[in-house]
């Protein structure tokens, strides 16, 4: 464990908690892409199948359970509890255009052709594109509440910190996970234009992000 990975995991946890609390306390999921949240729940489900088979550490197990519970709870809030506030007309990204290529690639490019390894690879590839329905929804509506932008900021920051973690691990222990690194770079690149808008607009005190 290194400081970049720890900060990355904390940033990821903060993002997930921000989103959950925003929906739970405002009793509304307006402006939130349910599709992205379903994809994230799928990412955690396919990645954490080893939750019961391989024990890494208490921290690892606890964080996996927390991520799984919060992501499914968020999907529940969006599609069941507060479904009247779910803006399905704006959440129109065709997720099959993500799932099919990601599934295909995880069969072609993986470390080991076993079910658990292919599912782990699928989760890594899927995570890099899972935010696209949410970013697409924001460009479609042309705006996002500031709390949603804070969610996206910490979510984007988490994988950027993981990139630093991989540089650190490469130089200190020769660790190099090519699939995770390449996907992490792609994932972080998708956030770049959002990061620019976030710094230039939201941090200037605007109540909400309105796209030009």
């Amino acid at each position: 464990m290194n400081v970049f990975r720890l900060l990355g995991d904390v940033s990821h946890l903060v993002a997930i908690i921000i989103l959950f609390l925003k929906i739970f306390r405002s009793k509304s999921c307006a402006g939130i892409s349910g599709k992205s949240q379903v994809l994230f729940a799928l990412v955690f489900t396919t990645r954490y199948l080893d939750l019961f088979t391989s024990f890494i550490s208490i921290y690892n197990t606890v964080m996996k359970v927390v991520f799984l519970v919060l992501s499914y709870a968020t999907v529940y809030l969006i599609y069941l509890r507060f479904r009247s506030s779910y803006d399905s007309e704006s959440d129109t990204f065709r997720v099959e255009f993500l799932l099919v290529p990601v599934a295909g690639l995880s069969f072609l490019e993986n470390y080991d052709f076993t079910p658990i390894e292919i599912l782990w690879t699928f989760s890594i590839y899927l995570e890099s594109v899972a935010i696209l329905p949410q970013l697409f929804m924001i460009t479609k509506t042309g705006e996002a509440e500031s709390i949603t932008t804070h969610y996206l900021f910490f979510l984007g920051l988490y994988r950027a910190l993981y990139l630093a973690n991989w540089v650190w691990r490469y130089h200190t222990e020769g660790f190099f996970d090519q699939i995770a690194v390449v996907s992490g770079v792609v994932q972080t690149i998708f956030y770049c234009d959002f990061f620019y808008l976030y710094v230039t607009k939201v941090l200037k005190g605007n109540s909400k992000l309105t796209l030009p």
Binding site: H12, D50, I56, I116, E117, Y162
Partner: peptide
Amino acid sequence: ERVLGAHDEL
């Protein structure tokens, strides 16, 4: 190279 099956990252 990564150790197979041992994903120690979240």
